[in-house]
Each structure stands twice: as structure tokens, then as C-alpha cells.
Write a protein that binds this DNA or RNA. Structure first.
Lengths: 155, 155
DNA sequence: CACAAACAGGATGTCAATATCCAATTTGGC
DNA sequence: GCCAAATTGGATATTGACATCCTGTTTGTG
């Protein structure tokens, strides 16, 4: 349903949100999110081009969020790496249908709309704030040990 | 969001529903739904294995629905060719999380649940019955000409 | 300035989804 | 029994997603 790339992008951003506004290196993010380092690098490039994060080269550099977590939605992140493509015209190319979708494609697009809405209504801050036994990205056992959680937990 | 295969499967089933309970050949379905003939053949094989349709070889044979359109849901069709995989355990493999998803993956799974529900609540009969200017699979211009619609319209 | 940290981007490899083609098999009708 | 209609299934492209590696560029620090 959702691509691996979307999953990775969301993990990375969740991690960045948990440490915002401090910068994290690609290596740090890769370790925390268990995303293949080399591939994460590409995903972060896409997020940079999509203006979700900004990167700083050189010593002390790394990746930081452009917006604060409470103004950044899941949808923005998803759309930056792999836009949710709504069905706007008849996939069969029936001219007569044009803008008006048939019942089947109307249903399919409605489903996508639901996903889009759900993602638009959730900010990264909400995800971090939520009380749970499974904090985003970080291992419960580890977090429970009285250690200060410095990595966001993602299940 | 949805794969090409799912799109093809739904078109094919919509067409079959519109002519049910008569059988249609792969060629007829391919023409009506504008799905590549050779590939449609594979998709229909999957639907056969998934017990959504049954096939009859030889002269006068073809493909027919196993269930009547009013008892067949979109979800059943989708699951036959490409099951919607819900997120049941932590994708990062964090043992501590186990069944309990973190807020991020909870959200992602909720979105999938919405799609699943929407698909489970719609039968093929409902799609055919819906009054619309774009009947499933068939071209409006053509249908408007007073011609008896023998192909289901899908936008 | 030299060096090391850190991202950018091109080249390449692997695999599953998509797609096509053809030989084999089943089956109804003459 | 023979032929034509149909599906089945195997073999074979093609393409994009996922992934890795390596070189180049930027930049802070001594």
C-alpha cells in the first residue's frame, strides 16, 4: 500500500522531529531508524528537494527540519517523496466521462481521499506527543531503563 | 496507491458483473476494459485461483463470476490479486513494541483500515446500480446513442 | 592551508511488477 | 474423430523501485 521509500521518509522525519531543532547526520538517522544508510541518503535528498528538510554540509552539519514539527504534516512528507495521485480523469480515456468518474473509480478515489485527509490532519508533533508504550522509533526496553530518550521511537 | 493489476482486476470484474451471469471471453473483457489482452489473461488466472471467477475452456466457454454481484465486494477482488497488507507488528522489529504500534505506524495502519473498510462496504451491484452520467466502463457518447449498453462502463 | 566531516550525485546491480508470446490442453460442435 | 474456440502455463522482455558504492564538493577547525 505504501512504498518502502515513504516508510523510510516518515521514519527519518519522525526522528528529526524528536530531536528538533538540532541537526542529525545521515548516519545518525540511519542507525536510529534502521534504514539502509546509502538509500536513506537518496530519500533525504528527495526530502531536501521537497523542502521538507534542509541539509548542511561539512563538519557539524547534517539534516534539520525546515518547519517545526507542529506545523509539519505526514501528508507533506509523503507528497515530497511520492505524491498521492488522486484519480482525476477516466483511466480508460473515455472522452465522454472526462471529469465525471464512473462509480468504480469514484470509489477508488474516495478511498485515496480518506488516506490523504487522515495524513493531512496529523502533524509530526502529534505523533511525538501521543502517550504510548511504544514511543516512536525507540525501543521500549531501552527507554524503560531510565535512559533519557534521545531517539524518537517508531514501531 | 493501487497497482495496475488491481485496477485491471476491478475493471474485469465490473465488466463481468454487468453481464452476469453470462460468461465472457478474455478477448471480450480485454476489449471492453481496454486492458492488454495477454496480461489480462494472467490477472484472470489470479482471480480464478482466488475463487472470484471461474473459467470454462473450449467453445462457448469464458469467464464468469462465482458470486452474484450483490454479494461480491471490491475488497474481495482486491485481496484476490494483491492483498491489502495491514501493519500488524513493528516494521523496525523492535521487540518491545510487538503488537503495540507506535503512533506513526498506528496512523499509517489506520489509513489502510479506512481503505479496507470502504472497499468491504461496496458491492459490485452497488457500483452498477448507481445512477450516473458515466456508467461503469462504457463510453457515455456511445451509450447515449440509444444503443443497448452491453458493456459495463468504467471511468 | 590542510584535514576530516558531511552531503551531493552519478554509475551500477538486483528484483518484482508489468507485459508479451507461444505451445499445450480442454471442450463443444460438425 | 477432427476442428476451432478458449483457457493454462512456461519462457521471455522491459521497466521502475530499492539498494549500494564511489567520487566530488562543501565547510568547520586547528
Amino acid at each position: 500500500m505504501f512504498s518502502q521509500t515513504v516508510e523510510y521518509a516518515l521514519r527519518a522525519v519522525a526522528h528529526l522531529a524528536s530531536t528538533a531543532p538540532e541537526a542529525r547526520t545521515t548516519d545518525q538517522i540511519a542507525t536510529a531508524t534502521k534504514v539502509p544508510r546509502a538509500y536513506l541518503s537518496k530519500v533525504l535528498q528527495a526530502l531536501t528537494r521537497g523542502a521538507i528538510v534542509k541539509s548542511q554540509r561539512g563538519l557539524g552539519g547534517g539534516i534539520t527540519l525546515v518547519k517545526s514539527p507542529d506545523r509539519l504534516t505526514i501528508l507533506e512528507v509523503v507528497n515530497a517523496v511520492e505524491p498521492i495521485e488522486r484519480i482525476r480523469t477516466c483511466p480508460l480515456g473515455l472522452v465522454g466521462h472526462g471529469e465525471r468518474l464512473c462509480p468504480l473509480h469514484r470509489r477508488m478515489d474516495d478511498a485515496m481521499e480518506k488516506v490523504e485527509s487522515a495524513f493531512r490532519d496529523t502533524t509530526l508533533a502529534e505523533i511525538l506527543a501521543e502517550p504510548t508504550k511504544s514511543p516512536p522509533l525507540c525501543d521500549v526496553a531501552e527507554a524503560a531503563g531510565g535512559i533519557v530518550v534521545e531517539r524518537p521511537a517508531i514501531t
